[in-house]
């Protein structure tokens, strides 16, 4: 379905742990249509000092009987936009654009699915998990964060998962380390057939590499900086390998796909991950889904043309 602009109402505002705010929004038209992995782009108010919308993947959708479904987003405080959203109260109105992007594809037959998430970037796995479980798929989970406080709502994932492995970088919950440290063993133990991963690019790159070695299909929801969210600004592009089977151009080529419209979910085997990953400053990262890290240092392909500094 095509996106629309909706004046959404705040239905609830709660916190998960110390760090994460969750806003449930009544957004008629979006709640009924949105698919796991899609996102919304939220105006933080009629500001002139910071003007861009902030993108958020859908954390959960709550069906309210015959009333419109509410959509829930979750975020931590990263800058002026999220600070403004964190001050929202029930019944406040928020200008929301959505649903945006292409979500996860759901297995056609019963499959053993592994959900892999890092930090607040794990948000879309909850909505995805609900959908997969409804469709009768087995779900296993690997959830990681820098410490126990930053594990996003692990309790709910534990409830839906057959196996739920947690990792923290400081060892305050689950295994000490990163999700990729336990990924291969979890996949082997669970007989994983499909992997769904959300989080910062370096994590996704490592997850994709492990899955490709194991020849397991992996879908990744990437976090890229975006200005518009609906396909016109060309800031959120990801380099993808594209196989062309026909004609004179048969072989491999690189295409720059828009995260906001062709993504944010991509086939992890198609993404060309850059070698150097930089964390962006906190006040900028709220312009990406999940806001973990951004790509950097990728060189344009040969013959790319030399554009101006602007545009």
């Amino acid at each position: 379905m095509s996106p629309s602009l909706v004046a959404a109402g705040v239905f609830s505002h709660k916190k998960y742990g110390e760090n994460y705010h969750a806003l449930a929004l009544v957004a008629p038209g979006i709640g009924a249509q949105v698919e796991p992995g899609q996102f919304i782009n939220v105006s933080c108010g009629p500001n002139r000092d910071f003007i861009l919308r902030r993108p958020f993947s859908i954390f959960r959708v709550h069906e309210q009987g015959s009333a419109p479904s509410t959509i829930e987003i979750v975020f931590d405080l990263r800058g002026p936009g999220t600070r403004q959203l964190a001050a929202m109260h029930i019944h406040d109105k928020i200008d929301v654009m959505g649903p945006l992007g292409v979500g996860f594809s759901i297995p056609q037959r019963k499959a053993k699915c592994l959900l892999v998430g890092g930090g607040v970037g794990a948000a879309p796995l909850f909505f995805l998990g609900d959908r997969l479980r409804k469709d009768g798929h087995r779900i296993d989970v690997v959830l990681g964060a820098r410490n126990a406080d930053h594990l996003l709502n692990a309790m709910d994932l534990r409830r839906m998962a057959s196996v739920c492995n947690l990792t923290t970088e400081d060892g305050s919950a689950g295994a000490r380390g990163r999700v990729t440290d336990v990924l291969a063993d979890t996949m082997d133990g669970c007989g994983t057939e499909v992997v769904y991963a959300c989080g910062p690019d370096p994590m996704l790159a490592a997850v994709a590499r492990i899955c490709m070695e194991k020849k397991v299909f992996v879908q990744v929801a990437v976090e890229e900086l975006m200005a518009c969210g609906y396909g016109v600004c060309m800031t959120c592009v990801m380099p993808l390998r594209e196989r062309r089977s026909k004609g004179a151009s048969a072989g491999r080529s690189v295409v720059y796909a828009r995260t906001c419209t062709e993504g944010p979910v991509f086939n992890g085997a198609q993404v060309i991950w850059s070698s150097g990953h930089e964390h962006v400053a906190q006040d900028q990262s709220e312009l990406s889904l999940g806001g973990g890290a951004v790509r950097a240092g990728l060189q344009p392909e040969a013959g790319a043309g030399h554009g101006p500094p602007g545009n």
């Binding site: 910071f50 003007i51 200005a227 600004c233 060309m234 959120c236 962006v280 344009p300 790319a304």
Partner: peptide, 11 residues
């Protein structure tokens, strides 16, 4: 033209 490397924008 395929354009420049990312990040391509900041607020």
């Amino acid at each position: 033209w395929s354009g420049k490397p990312t990040p391509r924008m900041c607020e």
